[in-house]
């Protein structure tokens, strides 16, 4: 049976963006729900542990609530989950910068290896830029 009336109106207006938001919320809800079951923790117990009401936890797990990152963080910390790891194991700060010190003629020569989007400390601009791409050699 094809939907009719107001129901059909809402179905016809389903858009990819809102569907994606719902999908992510439902995926997260499933992950948390399964972890609660695996650890034998009730929604009520989780609520007590993170200082929320049981109805708030229930709403989060319903898939229909847009909860905050802080709420999700609290849940992950309590259940030892890693839902918020953008890319597990990857550091967004190191950016493969290597810092090597060598000594030449009694002077310490500091060599920076720069990667894309790495911002050099303005103080370090005192060092003479090297002609080789992305290398700064101190003198």
């Amino acid at each position: 049976m094809k939907a009719k009336g107001t129901l059909a109106e809402f179905i016809s207006r389903i858009d990819e963006k809102s569907l994606a938001r719902t999908r992510v919320r439902m995926e997260i809800a499933i992950a948390i729900d399964e972890e609660l079951r695996a650890q034998g923790i009730s929604q009520k117990q989780l609520a007590e542990r993170i200082g929320k009401s049981e109805s708030e936890i229930s709403a989060i797990l319903s898939g229909g609530r847009n909860f905050t990152i802080d709420s999700l963080t609290d849940i992950c910390e309590e259940l030892h989950m890693h839902l918020l790891d953008v890319e597990p194991g990857r550091s967004y700060f190191a950016k493969e910068v290597s810092l090597n010190y060598t000594v030449s003629k009694g002077k310490i020569v500091r060599v920076f290896t720069m990667q894309d989007n790495y911002e050099v400390n303005p103080l370090e601009m005192l060092y003479r830029p090297d002609s080789r791409k992305n290398r700064i050699i101190a003198s």
């Binding site: 809402f10 207006r13 809102s18």
Partner: peptide, 23 residues
């Protein structure tokens, strides 16, 4: 209602009717 529509669509096509969504 918009969100209920999305949940029903996703339940049928992606996740099934899990108890976490249907109290």
């Amino acid at each position: 209602l918009k969100e209920i529509t999305n949940i029903l669509f996703q339940s049928g096509h992606r996740f099934g009717c899990r108890e976490t969504f249907f109290k």
